[in-house]
Design a protein around this nucleic acid. Structure first.
Lengths: 186, 186
DNA sequence: CTCAGAGGCTAATATCATTAGCCTTGAGGT
DNA sequence: ACCTCAAGGCTAATGATATTAGCCTCTGAG
């Protein structure tokens, strides 16, 4: 390494700080360069372009979320594991709303393995429900939709009323659990 | 009206067409002006700026969604109403994925009444479950999170596996219904 | 027939992203 | 001790885009 200086990871670090402070829309190469104390074009030595930087940021967020999720599930099973996963997920999103909003949902090869790991954790959290094959996939999708939907709306400040959000989320968790336990008619 | 020409509504129409065809990120004043056959600055005679245009677009989408939702709930009640609402919601999002992605969740005064109407419809769809006060609010939040989460992920192409999406969504609906019907342990 | 204003236009400015091409420095081989 | 070369910075230049200012021209109301 010819110089101390920047590196792709360092650029992503700075990007994350900007996202946290001013939201995903404020993530611009100019802003990153300014913080790095470097001219904008210099960043291209570390990152292909803005689009790629966004993907890298998203990947980092996904990794953090995976960390949180995996810790939540560790040593638990059944409803407890599921609730812990859901709580961890929401709490991460609530702690870092901008960062969570920077998550790119459209599948990208660069974040494919991180995404798969995350899905693996959800599958693990559902293991106790004895879902087979496709049933497990459907369950993961629903779990993901529920968690993500709530997280997005909460991060956007879309829940305006005074009612306690923890209670709302507890109901959401109850829906997931009872939906998995209750047999489906016809 | 001094001229046939443009109008705020016409501008939004064009904006919607662009969003539909190329996604929300392609919505730019240049693009709108080009389609309108007008110089970019002329648009400022009809719309305050790009941010406002986005809000107007979002308002239009919200109104359409309200229309779909209200039609779905009309003449139905109980599980049937809830499922019809959910199906209508998802089908709108699937039919117009870009448009759906252009929905702004952060509450804005300009779209407040449209949002309230939408929430009113969700409340109506839940009426048969006999929820009182706060309980109804929590239920609406969960319903909204579930529908929105699934719609966002589906629109983004986040569900990669081959499993049938209708089935996944049916499970989600089942979760909501059974969560509302099943009593919650303490 | 007049005239005010709605609605277009051009010119100008600022911010970004991105590319091209140059320069310096330090790590390693000789 | 040198030499070289590439990594990593830099400046200059280009091209979108948004936005503002200020001008011009119909058109419809009086």
């Amino acid at each position: 390494m010819t110089r101390a200086a920047l590196s792709p990871d360092a650029v992503v670090d700075i990007a994350l700080r900007i996202v946290d402070e001013k939201g995903p829309d404020a993530l611009t190469l100019s802003a990153v360069a300014a913080r790095a104390g470097v001219a904008t074009p210099s960043l291209y030595k570390h990152v292909r372009n803005l689009a790629e930087l966004r993907v890298l940021v998203s990947g980092r967020v996904m990794a953090e979320l995976t960390e949180v999720a995996s810790e939540a599930v560790l040593g638990r099973s059944g409803d407890e594991a599921l609730r812990a996963l859901m709580d961890g997920w929401r709490s991460y999103a609530a702690r870092h709303p901008h960062r969570y909003s920077a998550l790119i949902q459209a599948p990208r090869p660069e974040t494919a393995e991180a995404g798969n790991r995350l899905i693996g954790i959800m599958l693990a959290a559902l293991r106790a429900y004895g879902l087979e094959g496709s049933a497990a996939i459907h369950a993961v999708r629903c779990l993901r939709a529920a968690m993500h939907g709530f997280a997005v709306l909460e991060a956007a400040g879309a829940f305006q009323l005074a009612e306690n959000l923890d209670e709302s989320y507890a109901l959401l968790a109850h829906m997931v659990v009872s939906g998995l336990r209750t047999p489906r008619e016809g």
